[in-house]
Design a binder for these strands. Structure first.
Length: 198
DNA sequence: CACCTGATTGCCT
DNA sequence: GGCAATCAGGTGA
């Protein structure tokens, strides 16, 4: 499956609307953190869409709770939760406000602050290829839950996949409900070329 | 209040 | 490929 990711969009604009559409658009965008004296940045290459009350696999399916509170906020809000009691996972809320939907950020390609990521991860391989690893490498934790990805400590910057890149569409992983929904999107470069365009 | 399960990862065999 | 780690939300008594 081949399609463009678009670019030059207004954050408030491309983060709103159908969560599946937003999820696709997030591929190629850059996720940046700058704190603790370290700046780290990745190009997103794997995401999953999660709906609200109509999506059994979504945290928002059973209504508003203390944990999923930020999922009910405005588009562009960061929703961070603890997974398996051990890891942190980050989502970008796509709203609209009061109508929860979010995109789980599952993986990226490191482009800035690789040394910092290696330090935080305690290893030099598999730095950001998984939702928990991505948060670990970028230093994202529960304290960032509810912050804005437009002007908060964790920022999303619009970007596009390089020409010729493809988007694989697959079922979401690690869930047991609504597994038939192919709401997982993975960006792949044309032929071994860089996904970052760098 | 006790029990179960999970949008995962990393280490062990 | 198997499995432990580790804890909060959700469920049911």
């Amino acid at each position: 499956m081949i399609e463009d990711a678009g670019s030059g969009r207004d954050p408030g604009e491309f983060l709103s609307g159908d969560v599946v559409h937003v999820a696709r658009g997030l591929l190629g965008c850059r996720l940046i953190t700058s704190f603790d004296g370290m700046t780290t940045e990745v190009v997103l290459d794997e995401v999953e869409a999660y709906g609200g009350v109509d999506d059994p696999a979504s945290h928002a399916y059973r209504g508003r709770t203390k944990r999923n509170e930020s999922m009910f906020r405005e588009p562009g809000t960061l929703y961070v939760y603890r997974s398996y009691g051990v890891h942190w996972c980050a989502n970008v809320v796509t709203g609209p406000e009061g109508d929860p939907s979010a995109v789980l950020l599952r993986g990226g390609v490191p482009i800035v602050g690789v040394e910092a990521m290696e330090h935080r991860r305690g290893r030099t391989d598999h730095l950001t290829d998984g939702p928990g690893k991505l948060c670990s490498a970028l230093g994202i934790t529960g304290e960032h839950d509810g912050t804005s990805i437009i002007d908060g400590p964790v920022r999303l910057v619009d970007g596009a996949l390089p020409f010729g890149a493809t988007i694989d569409v697959e079922p979401r992983v690690g869930i047991t409900k609504a597994t038939e929904r192919t709401w997982r999107f993975v960006a792949r470069s044309a032929d071994g070329s860089s996904l970052t365009g760098i």
